[in-house]
Design a protein around this nucleic acid. Structure first.
Lengths: 262, 262
DNA sequence: CGGCGGTTTGATTTACTTCAAGCAACGTGG
DNA sequence: CCACGTTGCTTGAAGTAAATCAAACCGCCG
């Protein structure tokens, strides 16, 4: 964990790390260098070759903290940045006419948010921090300008967008054809995998989101989410204590949705 | 494999670009020129400026017919092409372990298919023609090579991918929070709009897909689809005769899901 | 002609929602 | 410090939308 190197000493309440250098001669503190980031293999630079990652550094992505509950961008906001999660968890959601929200996804370290804005220059969803978090802001136009002269790099963006398409694809399957138990199992296993990829335990973790948010994401009510957790516990698949989850029987969980999705 | 004069220098294009003109010296007949295509404002070239569309011409997209029921690509196939619909209708779908299929979308003239393959170099879904159709095959690598030297053009790809993300976003809302009537209303209105944009009647059209396919797409059974059609007919919102649909009360239909989605 | 795929409609069942109540953890202000 | 409201979670009982099971119809094709 090479993190806490830079940010500790600095005032962290900057809105966006506007272009750094200004007065000082030393590199500005709140600028990120991808090449030195511990997330580089999960995040934007993933798959880049040669000096491309170093070239990313020159864009000097702004970095900032986001407090729990704070909104990163809202539906309709002008699209300027892609955001990379450095730490913490976010949810993206849409507000429905009847006041309810539809959660579209949860994002954790190394994942990119805001790609839906490219289509119309305007964000199609809102995203909110579920806990205190830290992000990098990637100015989209600068990024594409750079990618213009570099085919490898633009490939990376395309791949990331496509990945988002694939992700939503599988969510559609989930929402379109699974029952409550299958949905929750799929959700937990997905979470487990992503946490594992980030060096955390795959079998024991703390949920950052409420039952209502899980329910919205999975297309069911919070009561059904709660009941399904209880059912899993009784089937000795999980141990659940509020938001603390311990997966006891991974295979058992897996069977739930392996039976559906090949 | 030796024909296709114009593509000689780019062997990979050939697989799909019919070996039409064989030995002749005149341009092969089944090569498409975007600049002269009647779909240019709906399709890939949409939003391109200056000579970009002409530059697309030089890629000489292969064009071919696809018979009803024929598969364009399958889950797991190597990703090489993006496909643009010239005429006809396609569905994309996933096969579930229990043998059922999950339909992920329907595509009509000017729409692009296969973008999900960019992520892992492999298609994440299958797509099948619902009626006799015609497509252009766009060799992805050539296309990105060209886009490499042209920032305007690569913007176009990104926008198209992002649009797909947004599309799936709204499908998630649909699947996650709407009831049967709202889903079918949303489906019909979406279809109506897209047909209108293509110069067809917005109020009267012929469905190319079965009740089962609609149901799979909307996350409900074919029986419920059928019943909901009947209900709409009784409410004098539609006239339904098998696959022939006439929308009588557009506002009435609209009210169904305006009440949900802002 | 018979069989088949697509559709409609009816009867029954069920998985989930809705409504409702209670509890635990937490923060706030008197 | 305790009473209080708030938020999140669980559980129960009742209601319902949609799934399932089932039958029949139509148009089509070999």
């Amino acid at each position: 964990m090479s993190t806490a190197t830079l940010e500790a000493s600095r005032p962290s309440t900057r809105i966006f790390a506007r272009h750094a250098g200004s007065a000082s001669t030393i590199p500005a503190p709140l600028v990120t260098h991808c090449s030195k980031c511990h997330l580089r293999d999960l995040c934007l630079p993933c798959g880049m070759t040669g000096g491309d990652v170093e070239r990313l550094d020159s864009l000097m992505f702004g970095r900032r903290k986001v407090a729990a509950g704070q909104t990163l961008y809202r539906e309709g906001d002008r699209f300027q940045f892609i955001y990379a999660v450095r730490s913490g968890t976010f949810k993206s959601s849409l507000m429905l006419a009847d006041g309810r929200e539809q959660v579209g996804g949860f994002y954790m370290a190394g994942e990119l948010m805001g790609l839906d804005g490219v289509a119309h220059g305007t964000h199609a969803s809102s995203t909110i921090a579920l806990e205190d978090a830290e992000i990098c802001s990637i100015p989209y136009t600068h990024f594409t300008e750079m990618a213009a002269s570099n085919s490898g790099m633009q490939h990376v963006v395309s791949r990331l967008m496509s990945r988002e398409i694939v992700r939503e694809h599988s969510l559609m399957v989930l929402l379109g054809s699974m029952n409550a138990e299958e949905r929750l199992a799929a959700f937990l296993l997905n979470l487990s995998q992503r946490l594992k990829a980030r060096g955390y335990s795959a079998s024991e973790f703390h949920l950052r989101m409420t039952r209502a948010e899980i329910g919205s994401y999975l297309g069911m009510t919070l009561e059904t989410v709660s009941r399904t957790f209880s059912a899993f516990q009784q089937q000795r698949l999980l141990e659940v204590d509020k938001r603390h989850i311990r997966i006891i029987d991974l295979d058992g969980l897996n069977r739930f949705f392996t039976s559906r999705v090949q």
